[in-house]
Structures are given as structure tokens and as C-alpha cells.
């Protein structure tokens, strides 16, 4: 299992951030996540593998500056 914004989700091998996003609604504003405490940005979503038991926080980055 993994945890996405404190909600449990089943884990599967070779799971990526991009594949998790395919299962979520309203993530258009999310271009950065924190995966087990480390920042991962959208250009790397497809290549970033999620280990089992990971914790992911979606960062609503509308801000900056």
C-alpha cells in the first residue's frame, strides 16, 4: 500500500508518480509532489518509481514568487 495525501492506495510494481496521477481527479494544478519527503517535479513524474509503503503529498503549486 502507499499513502497519497493520507489516503491509502494499493501499490503495484513499477508504479510511477505519473501512473498514480492517472487514477486521481483534479490534479491539473499539481506539478510537484513530495515523495517520502523528497520533491519530485512534473517533468520527472513518468520516470520516478514509487516504492511500496511510500508516502506522497501533492503540492498545489499555484504560488511562487
Amino acid at each position: 500500500m502507499i499513502e497519497v495525501d493520507e489516503k491509502q492506495m494499493p501499490w503495484f510494481p513499477d508504479m510511477t508518480v505519473a501512473s498514480v496521477f492517472e487514477t486521481l481527479d483534479n490534479v491539473e494544478f499539481c506539478s510537484v509532489v513530495r515523495l517520502n519527503g523528497k520533491l519530485v517535479s512534473s517533468p520527472k513524474f513518468a520516470e520516478t518509481i514509487i516504492p511500496d509503503n511510500s508516502k506522497i503529498q501533492l503540492l498545489p503549486l499555484v504560488s511562487g514568487g
Binding site: D5, S31, V32, L39, V40, S41, S42, P43, K44, Q57, L59, P60, L61, S63, G64
Partner: peptide, 20 residues
């Protein structure tokens, strides 16, 4: 749960800007 500014200020923007 978001930018953790009370811990890191605005330094979180460095890797984010870099990756974009």
C-alpha cells in the same frame, strides 16, 4: 503538508524551478 516554509523558507523553490 505543502511547502514547509516554516522549516525551509522559500528554498524549496530551488529544486522545483530547476526541474521545470
Amino acid at each position: 503538508k505543502q511547502n514547509r516554509m516554516s522549516l525551509v523558507g522559500t528554498t524549496h523553490l530551488v529544486p522545483i524551478m530547476n526541474d521545470h
